[in-house]
Every structure is written in structure tokens, then in C-alpha cells.
Amino acid sequence: ERADRNQPVNLEADRITADDARKIHVFEGKVVLTQGTLTIRADKLVVSQDAEGYQKGIATGGPNGLAHFRQKREGRAEYIEGEAERIEHDAKSEKSEFFLHARVRSGSDEVRGQYVIYDARSETYLVSNGPGGSTLPSTRKQPAPERVRAVIHPKNREESSPSAPVAAPNPAN
């Protein structure tokens, strides 16, 4: 949610090393970052801050080698969940990029591929083999599939339509 930005950030990790001059903090070992509805879990998290004070995080590794990202959608009861070998989250642009074995789920829909970029502000996503049409080499031994996949559960009309006002049963139909 947009409100996350001004929520307090809570961070846990085994080790923290800070470089105040360049405003970079490196957290390592079962890192968990929570800020409002946003949570990121990874082995290593590098947080940097730009001039205006917006933070940018790069999370790598985690349970079975994948960093994990979760955030509630704006005005919806659904959550965005994603995992990848490397996740880059930019609070300023509200964009999150997932690199290598990326998988992002929104509600019951899911996309998988080598590279996923999710724009929380416009709630749009793009999944492909790599940023800007390039193809990311995979770090894992087996060749990464060069195709991307999406599974969509279309909300059939009855469900999503506003609930009809309670009316007398219509004898006609």
C-alpha cells in the first residue's frame, strides 16, 4: 500500500554493517524487513538511501536460494507475493524487480519467468527473459526456461459485480 512508505521500518538480521558515508546498510543472515504491509525476507539485504531520503533495497538469497517479497495491494484485500534469486525494491518509484526464477502472485493470478517488474503505483507487471529484452543467464546449473508463464483466474462476472440489492424473487425468468 502507498501508506507503507511512512510506516516505521523494522529489520532483523544476524549481522548488520553500516556505511553511513555512502548511506548503505548491509544486513546478512535470515534478514526480515517489515514496513507497514511490506515484508522482505532474504539471506542478504543491501539498503541504500538517495538524496531525498528514499530507500532502495536489494535482497538476494533466502530459503532454497530465493528472496521473498510480500505487500498488500492498494484498496484491495489481496496481497502481492513474489520470490526470486534477487529482488530490487525502489520505494521512490514503488517498483520491485525480480531477477532469475522470478514468480509473482497477485490474488490467485501468478506470473513466472526470468525477470518480473511490478509497478505498485499503476499495479502493472511485466514478465520476460530479462530487463529491456535482454536474456539473463541463469546462475543455477539447469538452463533457465527462456519462456515466461502466467496463470489467470478470471473473476467471473457474478462474483465481481456489485451484489444485487435484495429484491423480491423475480417470477418471470
Binding site: 506470473v111 519467468g113 511485466l126 519462456r147 508463464r149 502466467a150 483466474h153
Partner: peptide, 12 residues
């Protein structure tokens, strides 16, 4: 619906 392609983008 299953979709497979080289690039997929969209608004969930």
C-alpha cells in the same frame, strides 16, 4: 487461463 510467451505484461 494458462498463458505462455516470451514476454507478458499487464494489470492483474
Amino acid at each position: 487461463v494458462h498463458v505462455e510467451a516470451e514476454r507478458i505484461e499487464g494489470k492483474s
